[in-house]
Every structure is written in structure tokens, then in C-alpha cells.
Amino acid sequence: MFKKFTALIIAIFFITINAYAGSSGEIDLNKSEPKEIKDCFEKLNRATFSFNQGLDKAIIKPIAKGYRGLPDPIQKGTSNAVRNLSNLITIPNNVLQGDIKMAVINTGRLVVNTTVGLLGIIDVANKMGFPKYEMEDYGQTLGAWGVGPGCYLVLPVLGPSNLRDTAGSFVNVMGGDPWYNLSVHGNNEFLSQDIYMISKALSGVDFRANNIESFDNLEKNSIDFYASVKSLYTQDRENKIKNNKRGNIEVLYKDETDWEEIDKK
């Protein structure tokens, strides 16, 4: 109970800071798309980013490379299983965003894949013609409700985030993630906190393994790798909040003033 209370306090703290972040003394909850990314903790962020890069080079990337060496069915099965588990967070967020139709579809997907698909290892729903799966989380829901991203944050191990999305992640451990509730507080003999942590670690390794070349290429061709990652993270979250499958010009450029000025020359 005390743990939950602490998490709740931290989440309220983040949301409150978020409401103020990026504003000059005025509460700016509705400004969900500020023109510039507020990097209020840049020095700390850059230090954490360097730490994460070191960790990545020493541990995560080698593991991801090893994972890539596993037979395709094992990789695919792992990827499918961790995606299936993420439905448990996506479904409540579909409801919170008012997308009841997608909540019903994702519930169907979860049931089919968990049963017929052997705990999600096989994506039977996809073969049955279910619509493409789009993950949703509490950070996206806060964004959809109009909460701005607030200051950019780099979290140790977890990587890029912002105050809104970090607050959203706290909701998971406050009861918003049924998988966490079942495995950590479920009092059953099959699941435990270790199982939960393993599932999260596998999800991270799977993501890293799928992006080895992209990250290498980005690092090699950036003059400020930290800033590139910050920009790409922010653009990706904006697209996800707006549910854009492809880039939307209004979301991407915020306004066209810069281009218009250049055109006039």
C-alpha cells in the first residue's frame, strides 16, 4: 500500500511539473505540441545518455546481437509473445482514449493469441485478418487528453522519455498494467516479479535487436547523436499520439514559417 502511495505521489509530482514545464509561469496543459523540445535537464540528460551508451555497448548490444543469432522462429515467437502481453496495457488505453471499437478488437486479439496462439507465441489474429496492431500506453493517453510532453528526460537504462511519458509509465506500476499486477501481486505459483522483469528485458532486447543497423547508421551520421535521438523520440511520440501512420506535415513541421521565409528569398 505504501509502495502504491509513493508511486502515486511521484506520478502527481511529474504531472504537476509537466503542467508547468515549458511555460513562462502559465499553466500550459493544453499545449500538447510545443514548437521546441524543452531540455530542462540537459546536462543530467547528456550524462545519463553517455551512461546508457556505455551500458549498451558493453551489455545490451552484444546480447541483442546474440539474440539475432537465434533461429528465426525463436525470435519471432519471443517478439510475438511480448507484443501480446502489451495488449494488456493497450486495451485500457484504447478505452481511456474513447476508442471502444479498437479495445474490443484488441481484446479479441489477446484472447485468440493467448489461447490458440500458445501464450502469444504465434500471431494467429494477424493470420485471421485482424487490423494491424498499434500499441498504446498511458503516456499516449495523457497526450491524447491534451497534456504536453514537458521537459525531455533520459532515464537510466530505459532511455529517452519526457515528464508526461514517465508519469504514464508510473501508472503501469500503480495498477494500470494487469500483467504487472498478476505477476507481482498475483499470489500465484506460476508468476513472480522475476517473470515480469524477464518479460520486460526480453521486450527491450527484441527492440534493440531489430534496430542494430538503424542505430549504428544514425550514430555514424549525426553531428550530435544525443540531439538526433531526442528529436526522433519526440517525433515518434507525436505521431503515436495523433495515430499518424505516416508523417503528417502539420505535426512534423509545427508551422511552415521557416520554409515560407526561405521560399521568398
Binding site: E36, E42, D224, A227, S228, Q235, N239, G247, L252
Partner: peptide, 22 residues
Amino acid sequence: LIIEGLSLARTQKEEFASILNS
């Protein structure tokens, strides 16, 4: 070039802005 919804021009602009701000 907008790759999977991510604009290269915007990324470059924000990268340059970060260097200038620092």
C-alpha cells in the same frame, strides 16, 4: 525525407539547434 513518419529535415534542424543552444 520522411521515414516511417520521422522527418530528416526536422531531425537535422533540432540537432543544429541543440549544438547552438549548448
